[in-house]
Structures are given as C-alpha cells and as structure tokens.
Design a protein around this nucleic acid. Structure first.
Lengths: 199, 199
DNA sequence: CTCATTCTGTACCAATAGGTACACTTAATA
DNA sequence: TATTAAGTGTACCTATTGGTACAGAATGAG
C-alpha cells in the first residue's frame, strides 16, 4: 500500500485557520488551496464532500482536542479548584488570549449554524455541563454552578469578540479574570463539600 | 425635485439583517436584492460604492442608534443605577435576548474586521467608556469600573454567541443577570459617591 | 523491476460573484 | 402639461466560485 504523501491529519490545522479567518463562506477553495499547499485534486481526494466535509473534519478535530485537553482534565482532576483554574489557563492559551477566534462560536453566529448545528450545540453543552459539574464539586450550589458555568463561557466568547474588535488581548484577560475569580470564590459554604484545602 | 420612490433610510434595516445573517462575504447582491426588494440598478444608485458602502451605511446607522438609545441615556440619566439597569434592558431588547447577532461584533471576528476596523473599534470603545463612567458615578472605584465595563460587554457578546449556538435565549439571560448584578452591587463604599437613594 | 494504489496537477464546467451601462419610467415642480 | 431629476430594470461584462474528470506521477509491496 502506498505511503501517504500528504497526511489528512496534517491538513486539519491549516484548514481550521482558513475557516477561522474567513468564515465558512469566505473560505474559498483558492484560499484553502494556498493554506494547505495542495491543489483541488488532492483536496477532493481527501475530502470528496468538498468544503462541508472539510469543515466537519475540523469540527471533529476541535471536539477531540477539547475532549482530551479541557473536558477530561476538568472532570477527572482531583482538586477541582486546580481543575477549574487549569481550564481557564488552557482556554486562554488555546485562544491566544482572545486573538484567535473560536471557530465553533463563529459558525454559530451566521447561517453556517444550520449546516453544523449539531456539532456546535454539542461543543457548548459538553463544556457547560463539565464545568458545571466541577463547580458543584468545588462546593457551589447546583443553581449557582449552572449560572457560573454559563457566565464563564460567555466571558470567554465575549472576551474573544472584544479582544478581536479592539485588537488587544487585555480585554480578553479582563473578562476572564473576573469570571475565574467568581468560579474559585465559593460562597460562605453552608453545607457544600468544599475542597480548597491544598490549592 | 422628484420624490424618492425608495428612501435610502428604508434600506438600512433590511441591509443590516442580510449582513447579520450571512456576514459580509456571504451577503451577496442577490440576497441583498431579495431582502430590499430592489434591483441592482437601484442599489447602485443609492450606494455607488457597492457592498462596502452599504455595510458602512449600516454601521453608521448602528452607531447612531446606540448613541441615542444607549450611550446618551447612560451618560445623562441622573440616577446612575437606573441608567445602568436601563442599558442592560435596552441591550437585551435590541439583541432580541441574544437571538439577534451583534453585527459589529461579527464583523470583528473574521477578515471583514480589516475593512471596518475603525467603526468596530469606535463602537466598543465608546460603549466601554460610557459604561465605565456610569459605574464610577455609581460609586465603583475607577479600576473596578473599568473591569466591570469590560466584563459586562463580554457578557453581552458572549451571551449572544451562546444563545445563538444553543438556540435558546436563556443563555443570554444567564450571562447578563450575573454581569448586571455585579454592576449594581457597589462594594462597601469606603468613600465612593454612591447614589442608590431612590432606585 | 512490476504493479497496484495513492496522490496530484491541469483542464474543464456551469453557476454565480460584484459591478457597469444605459434606456426607460416615475413624479414633483413650474 | 412640459421639464427635469430621481429612481429602476435589463442586459451585459469579466473574474471567480465550488466541483468534476482524468491522465499521470509518486510510492511501497511483491
């Protein structure tokens, strides 16, 4: 069997950058071709379904990355304060402090949402629920945990919007520190199972 | 002088909706034509500069709307608690509780930003500074006011992303109530000029 | 070396993109 | 009612769009 000259997995990263920069409609095959260094022939060899299949592959890769780098650590790290702080740190790194756009969020904002509704919804619900569970473990009341998780994801996404719009990462950081502080400050702990002992 | 059959001002609203739904690149002249009910001839009569001029006109109208409905009230309303609460309410109404996208934010997320960088930056800086001033008037310390303003705008923008992605306004509301509560809860007021007297 | 498979470049396609040219209609004014 | 400017529809232009077809190059297995 012939060795693969170009690996499909090597294409995901440049593909993702093109979709991020130009959106789904603006990501023309010419731009994709330039970013990957591959002609249409190769592109359609790897992705017979065209742009739609390319975007699906990118979304799948993103889902996989977040699963192993964000969601799993968030759900398994013993010290939940560490887990949550780690999530904020990993997120800030992934999004280049807001200078790099969230592809899933961007796809959700225009009609591209209709094509990828399932992947988009899955991404955010998974994140929301994992964070919520970690917040409960930390000692937040369930209702409060739900609210904090929602607020935190909004801060991340909104921080990206502001940082991009004003072309400065400081706005991402400002939005994030507030959310992070609120997550890690557990209320007067009436009966919650607080485990801040060794953070 | 002949009366205008179609008024330029009547075109802004449908134009804005097309740009919101499809983004700048996805807003084709065919879609614009369908949304406005005007053919290319009329469109280019009103906007000789084409799509770019249309988008600029929409951004200008948005800037004007926010100036009179959000920024001016925020800066002039005597009771600053009322002013800030009013801003949140007006914002939620404008964005249809997160179901309607912020065109300025969306434009900032992809390469469209480069075309309209000035309008985009002006929109957010104006909002940021006006809110910051109102928060100071309320009694927040300057540094805290700056942080809260940034956090609030991030909550709004992030709330839109979540509400769109998950197709439910509840996420917008969740993100907003937290931010609003923090803005209106002024810290133990050591020497700040708090004016919550008749809210 | 041979061969089957994988990969790639080129040529091609119909459809649509944004934009222009211009003759035509509409309608307020004088 | 004639004039004049504003507004409109249609035809047309070139460039680019996503996508297909396919011959040929690369490559490891036998």
């Amino acid at each position: 069997m012939a060795r693969l000259i170009a690996e499909k997995s090597d294409l995901i990263a440049p593909l993702a950058e093109v979709f991020r920069e130009y959106g789904f409609e603006g990501a023309t095959l010419a731009r994709i071709s330039a970013a990957t260094g591959l002609g249409k022939g190769s592109l359609y060899h790897f992705f017979p379904g065209g742009k739609e299949e390319m975007a699906q592959a990118v979304l799948a890769e993103i889902a996989h990355w977040f699963e192993s780098h964000i969601f799993t650590p968030l759900g398994t790290t013993q010290n939940s304060a560490h887990a949550i702080a780690g999530m904020f740190a990993a997120t800030a790194a992934y999004f280049h402090t807001g200078q790099r756009v969230c592809l899933v969020g961007v796809f959700g904002l225009n009609t591209t949402r209709d094509r990828f509704a399932q992947s988009i919804a899955a991404y955010f619900t998974r994140w929301l629920h994992t964070l919520e569970a970690a917040l409960c473990t930390l000692g937040h009341k369930p209702a409060q945990a739900q609210l904090l998780a929602c607020q935190s994801l909004a801060a991340i996404q909104g921080g990206i919007v502001l940082a991009r719009a004003l072309n400065s990462p400081q706005y991402f950081e400002a939005a994030l520190t507030q959310a992070k502080a609120q997550c890690l400050t557990v209320s007067p702990t009436p009966h919650g199972h607080n485990n801040l002992q060794n953070s």
